[in-house]
Nucleic acid binder design. Structure first.
Lengths: 259, 259
DNA sequence: TTGTATTTGTTCGTATGTATC
DNA sequence: GGATACATACGAACAAATACA
């Protein structure tokens, strides 16, 4: 095979090459082991000194890898624990910090977050309306009942009851991805607007309206009407947040109202 | 003030206390500085040795903090650079790895992933239908045109054109959160079923149907009919995946079809 | 272009406080 | 309570890589 200039048909597409740090290789290996299920939550990693032997690096390098995994919420190491670092159960908290960073860097606007909540909430309601059993319907009814009583007890109790309501819905919808996304987005929204709305002196009226919206959702789910349940949650969120977003961002919220 | 047992009115609610690592404090401070805008993307952090002086810790501790920030995509340090670690522009990619970890650890079923895709796709279509400009409409039309020609060129070209179509839609929808979720879920789905479907010998017919569905979406977006655009994508995904999920899981997919 | 100084990547040794048996 | 093994944190050192004169 003689190689000539005209033999080069495909221009070589080279990838940019970057130095791979040792600690990254360690992170990859441990991460892969967790992903493959070889390391289950509650199990222990070998001690740092043991890892030094297995990976053939220094202690500092192993520790850098462990700090990265720790900040990602995958492991936790405690001084003096002879059993070694613990593999943790992965949860929403692993998404919360990155999400908040993203929102804080102004790459995510409140409107974008609210649109996401409209999507997640309405989908969960639609699924719940279609999949609920009679027993699960009773759970929702009880959650609404708790909200009614909490209305008298003040804002904290009401917002807690509201959270419970949505957790019940999410569990019935049966989709962990939607559930996790919902709590992550909700937390981010709360961190973003903090108490802009909760400071309103007409909080009683706001809570009353919120309760009415939840009762509408309950009605729709009871009737098995997923479309109506989805619409109710979208409108509720729109009412609540529309005044807090800029005019041009509101177009996206309004586009979500259809259907 | 004499202290007696009856003086204790409020029962002391103590929070569980956990050891705070030095590197965490450093991460917090740098993170806060970035969030406050004191450190803009492109700017440089002091060198490691300088940070050692400013924080009053050892270099290993500073390095652990830098590795955590690096893995989070906030900074990048290169050997030999006397200007110090670079502050990076935060992007959606910072959410990708946590999301993939979560999807992998949550043992998501194909049905749950497909439901999520129905949610994300249909929402993006609805937003695009309501927000598109004339120019953006032309982008979509061009993407569909590319799919038509790719139909003749085989499966790889077609699936690539399909990806481009969705990327265009996502960019018009203007919600990075939805966009990110979409690519993450799509990648996970592909990793799950690998080539179960692509090995079908009637791939030509499958591609043809897919093209028809995309044309339906285009029509609806052209007409500004968000509801129809959303419905089209849900039905397309249902048709494509319904046969691959178990019967009881199919109920969730069918619940998503309404609306 | 070459050389030099500085910085990061990595390693080793050590002291200290802590959890488990 | 003591012994052991562990993680935390510090300091010094060398090699490789980069920027700048």
């Amino acid at each position: 095979m003689a190689a000539g200039p005209d033999m080069i048909a495909d221009p070589p597409r080279f990838e940019q090459v970057q130095p791979v740090r040792l600690y990254e290789r360690i992170v990859e290996q441990i991460e892969a082991a967790v992903a493959r299920g070889e390391l289950r939550p509650g199990e222990r990693l070998p001690s740092e000194r043991e890892l030094v032997v297995q990976f053939g690096t220094s202690r500092a390098t192993v520790r850098e890898a462990l700090r990265v995994l720790e900040s990602a919420g995958l492991v936790r190491s405690r001084p003096g624990d002879p059993r070694g670092p613990e593999v943790l159960q992965i949860g929403v908290d692993s998404l919360r910090r990155p999400l908040e960073r993203l929102a804080g860097a102004a790459r995510l606007s409140l409107a974008q977050l609210v649109v996401s909540r409209m999507m997640l909430d309405s989908t969960a309601n639609q699924l719940a309306a279609g999949l609920r059993t009679e027993e699960q319907l009773a759970w929702i009814e009880q959650a609404v009942e708790v909200m009614r009583t909490a209305l008298e007890e003040g804002q904290d109790a009401f917002s807690k009851a509201d959270m419970t309501f949505h957790e019940v819905i999410m569990s019935i919808a049966g989709n962990p991805l939607i559930q996790l996304g919902h709590t992550a987005v909700r937390d981010t929204v709360l961190a973003l607007i903090s108490d802009t709305i909760s400071d309103a002196d007409d909080s009683r009226a706001v809570m009353q309206r919120s309760l009415t919206h939840h009762e509408e959702v309950l009605d729709a789910i009871r009737a098995g009407d997923g479309v109506r349940a989805a619409r109710a949650s979208r409108r509720s969120l729109y009412e609540y947040y529309a005044a807090s977003v800029t005019a041009d961002e509101r177009a996206a919220l309004e586009a979500m109202l259809l259907g």
